[in-house]
Write a protein that binds this DNA or RNA. Structure first.
Lengths: 275, 275
DNA sequence: CACACCTCCGTACATCGTATCGTACACCAT
DNA sequence: ATGGTGTACGATACGATGTACGGAGGTGTG
């Protein structure tokens, strides 16, 4: 909280759409496709996906329309539907594609010594993914797209948590917790830089203007905690929020909690010590 | 991860819109308004908001259009714009309104003994809020709407974390961490029940069908961890995921981490012990 | 060479937010 | 009661969206 004082003017009031009604079997077939046929206009599903990702990176997913995508591909709008059942599946495929690229080059994730370092590396990779493809944050991932790219990513990430004293269910729960945390923090970070770009103000410039207005509006006797802590964090961050700090604080806290879970259980293969 | 095997058919590929370009000062004036004028059709801003919330609760925010809202109010579509500059501000106001209701009846949050219980109560209230008004999950809260309702909620929540050995910045960071966690877990829970409703299948029924398909697709030698842990969690949850469990695990882990932060620092007012 | 199929796309429809601008009601001074 | 004035209201229209439909034209196979 206390991130922003006032809604400014960009990226606000975002509302999700629910467009996908496609047959799940169609998605599966496309996700795990082996062929990549090329039509007579030189278009293939892969080029469609790459162009879609490109467009989304540039202008955001809300500006990715079938018409604009077709235009960039120099193709009629409806031609896209020969390769993709609907926009819903298109986005699924885009998501799976970028997920597949995360751990592609680094076979595994480097050679970390401790499990904490490994998990921090996983978090870091996800942070990079989400800032590289900001539009991912606007895609609801409550239901993950289970294509090969996403599975591969999942597998690599699970490996970092294997054999450190957690059972399988705990590994899954821990990974989910970490990934969701990264997602939350990245959302704020991306949002802030977007706003700065649009407004022209840097975050601290904006804060120096907005801070006093909020202070005047909020009755500090009625809301003493919000008032006091809002002031403190404002001075500390020189802004309404510091996403980097939220990211590191959250990750450290979560990992401390996981460490306690491991320690409480004791070493894996040893019998419980007497007494 | 490992929540769902395949994208089924509902609520998928959600894409955010960025509709609001309104002057922030207009939002402020409306959020902190004191009057509530009633037009000659008997409509007021409050009735518009209540009806909007009602509609969103029933049909989801993606089915909340200015036309449908006006229709339910038995009023011309454009008449709404006499009370609200745009849909963006409408949603801001709806959000602030429901935020203001969270701790309205329970003055404070009950009388918890430990700070852990207090924070758990905060999490619980937020869980309830998000399941009562599922559409909140579809509204991007990267930039909070700083109206009176939201501020009041923030203040109450901060109070639960005050005086337990955290400094002001840590209090803010901790609250953010907890709230974001609840939001993540609630999103999955809401999504699952939505799907069950649409499909007609219960979650476990669906899982018994989908599980084998995934197992057949995923090469277990190529993705050993995903394969093994996916299987384990599937059997354990009797589904692809268990949001309740994710919720409790995450909250416990986070609070353990916070506890360590407090303990490491030692008692607040005592001087450091010698040695 | 003919037939079938697949690629491509022009058109149309429903829906959205909202800009524009005329109408008619409510209230107030007289 | 009457006239005037401001504001609440809404009909219409515009540009955008996703995509259903059906036809045109190129391509591969008999």
């Amino acid at each position: 909280m206390a991130r922003e004082m006032f809604p400014t003017d960009e990226n606000r009031d975002d509302v999700v759409e629910h467009t996908g009604r496609g047959d799940p079997l169609k998605s599966i077939a496309l996700l795990w496709r082996s062929d990549n046929r090329t039509g007579r206009s030189g278009m293939s599903l892969d080029t469609i996906l790459d162009t879609g990702i490109e467009l989304a990176n540039e202008t955001g997913i809300d500006n990715l329309s079938m018409r604009k995508l077709a235009e960039r591909l120099m193709v009629g709008t409806m031609s896209l539907y020969a390769y993709v059942p609907s926009k819903a599946e298109l986005i699924d495929l885009m998501v799976d594609r970028v997920n597949g690229e995360v751990y592609q080059d680094t076979e595994g994730i480097g050679d970390q010594v401790t499990w904490r370092q490994s998990v921090e590396a996983v978090a870091e990779q996800n942070w990079r993914l989400l800032t590289r493809h900001r539009w991912l944050l606007a895609v609801d991932e409550a239901r993950p797209v289970l294509g090969p790219g996403t599975i591969a990513k999942y597998d690599t990430e699970l490996r970092q948590l294997d054999g450190i004293g957690l059972n399988d269910v705990e590994i899954d729960l821990t990974l989910t917790l970490v990934l969701q945390h990264v997602r939350s923090a990245a959302r704020v970070a991306v949002d802030l830089t977007d706003t700065s770009q649009v407004t022209g103000d840097s975050e601290s410039e904006w804060w120096s203007k907005a801070g006093p207005v909020l202070a005047a509006l909020v009755d500090s006797s009625k809301y003493p905690h919000a008032s006091r802590i809002g002031t403190t964090t404002g001075q500390e961050y020189n802004a309404a929020t510091d996403p980097q700090r939220a990211y590191h604080f959250g990750l450290r806290t979560i990992l401390d909690g996981v460490e306690k879970l491991i320690q409480d259980r004791g070493p894996l293969s040893e019998p419980p010590a007497a007494g």
